[in-house]
Design a protein around this nucleic acid. Structure first.
Length: 288
DNA sequence: AAGTTTCCCAACCGCACAGAG
DNA sequence: ACTCTGTGCGGTTGGGAAACT
């Protein structure tokens, strides 16, 4: 026994909305709103439509401040960053793009952006190295492990392998885990205070061993312990993206992810430049 | 010009979840 | 604790438009 249908399927109209229907719904919504119930709304508004259909039409097309048309490079970057870190949570991603709807972003991703993304053609998803002029020294309480480093005391000056994010067009691996500009804020900082380990997702480097499987992640420790954690990005690159593509950190030894406590409000998007993002990250890990 | 294929996107469907009773 | 109902979400589809042959 299935659940009762939300409306009388035989008596509701399906398919494209006519301008008259749009006008009806818009007028009704502007006067009354949903009055807390989408299911009864079509009847009250004189529409032969399912309540869910009305809701979708309103949310995606009729409500004020909906933005249509071409996506900007910035929007591309945001979508890719979030997709890389949280996957197909379109409603959350839409929350980062005022005026865009989850449906529109989903369609855009499936038809266009996914291809650009996989080909490394999203502008700011390109590999970003640290600026030449900046040297990032680690304090004595922190340590770094890198496939390119020989000791924990290395300074990292625009090391091409040292990237906070972006797609590595050379190795065709890594880096779409988490764009450098996409990090969590307050709630995450609270967690980081007690964390043993922070992994800013990207920075994976592949090496060409005979089995082709050698991958290592850069790890920024919080000064307590350093653990190498293999995200396995290479395999995800070919097989699709899954839940492991997140900012990872440990709290009391347990791995949790950047989508902190499954609360979407903890995810913020920083539009600052790379330098600004690095500053925020340095603050997060108390890096002097 | 006509037919076919591909692309695009609006809308539908079914499921999960939350809140009320 | 359980059922019922409305809402929200993500995956999928249908059909129109555009591109191609």
């Amino acid at each position: 026994m299935g659940r009762t249908p939300c409306c009388d399927k035989a008596n509701v109209k399906k398919g494209r909305w006519s301008p008259e229907e749009d006008a009806n719904l818009k007028e009704y919504m502007e006067k009354h709103g949903t009055e807390g119930n989408w299911i009864t709304l079509p009847q009250k508004a004189g529409l032969r439509r399912c309540g869910k259909s009305c809701r979708l039409r309103w949310l995606n097309y009729l409500r004020p401040n909906i933005k249509h048309g071409e996506f900007t490079d910035d929007e591309d970057r945001i979508i890719c960053s979030f997709f890389a870190s949280i996957g197909s949570r379109w409603s959350i991603i839409a929350g980062q793009l005022p005026g865009r709807t989850d449906n529109e972003i989903k369609n855009y991703w499936n038809t266009k952006l996914k291809k650009k993304f996989l080909l490394g053609m999203v502008p700011s998803m390109q590999q970003k190295s640290l600026p030449q002029s900046t040297t990032y020294s680690l304090n004595q309480n922190s340590s770094v492990e890198s496939p390119y480093s020989t000791s924990n005391n290395d300074n990292y000056t625009s090391n091409p392998a040292w990237s906070f994010g972006g797609y590595d067009t050379m190795s065709r691996t890594s880096s779409y885990a988490l764009d450098s500009t996409c990090i969590t804020t307050t709630a995450l900082q609270d967690q980081i205070k007690d964390s043993h380990l922070i992994i800013f997702g990207s920075g994976e480097v592949s090496c060409s061993s005979s089995d082709g499987s050698c991958t290592t992640n850069h790890i920024i420790s919080h000064g307590k312990e350093v653990v190498e954690y293999d995200h396995g990005f290479s395999s995800h690159f070919s097989s699709g993206i899954d839940e492991t593509h997140k900012l990872m950190l440990t709290k009391n030894g347990d791995l949790v992810n950047g989508y902190v406590n499954e609360n979407p409000t903890n995810l913020r998007y920083y539009e600052e430049s790379l330098d600004d993002s690095i500053e925020v990250m340095k603050q997060l890990i108390n890096w002097h």
